[in-house]
């Protein structure tokens, strides 16, 4: 995974709450067996509306999505993260993320920063005053800057460290492989086994 320190690019003031992963990418696009090529599927239903914010010229090439609370609820589909990433987004800022979505993002190098609702409102107002302006998301300082407005965001220390270092989870876990093997020797015989088939 690529190391992340700062992300700079066009910021989208996404005035919607409860954006579920069915909206981020409808199920019909989940049939592909690849991990890329989902950019066309992002917000597919909403993008049919020519006035939808991502269709507006000033927000082309956007990298930072600033959304209302409860972003990424519902289905566990990691395709939602792949679609955001394929479209060009590198960071999402919201007052609250669904747990599975936030976890998936951290594993795929999509930064999720938490700020409170009032702060999101300030960010929205600042960007709407100058549509198409850049935001800078600084993972080292844990801040988002749009123009003269700089606000702190929260991200858990472990995810932040992994993103800064670009670390792969499986590799990290396999450092503990001896402990996994040891744990398995204590596993009781009543616990389920799928094989042999009974």
């Amino acid at each position: 995974m690529e190391k992340i320190t700062t992300i700079e690019g066009v910021a989208v003031p996404f005035r919607r709450s409860n954006v579920d992963t069915d909206q981020i990418i409808p199920a019909v696009f989940l049939k592909r067996v690849t991990k890329t090529g989902f950019d066309d599927a992002l917000f597919h239903a909403w993008r049919q509306d020519p006035d939808f914010i991502l269709n507006r010229r000033e927000y082309q090439g956007a990298k930072v999505l600033i959304a209302g609370p409860d972003f990424g609820t519902g289905s566990s589909r990691e395709h939602a993260v792949w679609a955001l990433r394929d479209f060009g987004f590198r960071a999402v800022i919201s007052p609250r993320f669904a747990d599975i979505f936030r976890g998936n993002s951290g594993k795929q190098g999509l930064l999720t920063g938490v700020v409170d609702e009032q702060t999101v409102e300030r960010l929205w107002e600042r960007i709407e005053a100058e549509p198409g302006m850049n935001a800078t998301v600084d993972l080292v300082a844990q801040t988002v800057t749009v123009g003269d407005l700089t606000v702190p965001f929260e991200i858990d220390d472990y995810t932040r460290w992994r993103l800064l270092e670009g670390l792969d989870d499986i590799g990290l876990t396999l450092r503990d492989e001896a402990r996994i093997t040891e744990f398995e020797t204590t596993r009781e015989s009543w616990r389920p086994r799928t094989l042999p088939i009974r």
Partner: peptide, 18 residues
């Protein structure tokens, strides 16, 4: 609990999750 595809790979490889 439900997991994403990266975690599916993690469980397949290690039978654990952080």
């Amino acid at each position: 609990f439900g997991i994403g595809t990266s975690e599916v790979e993690h469980v397949l490889a290690t039978q654990t999750l952080p």
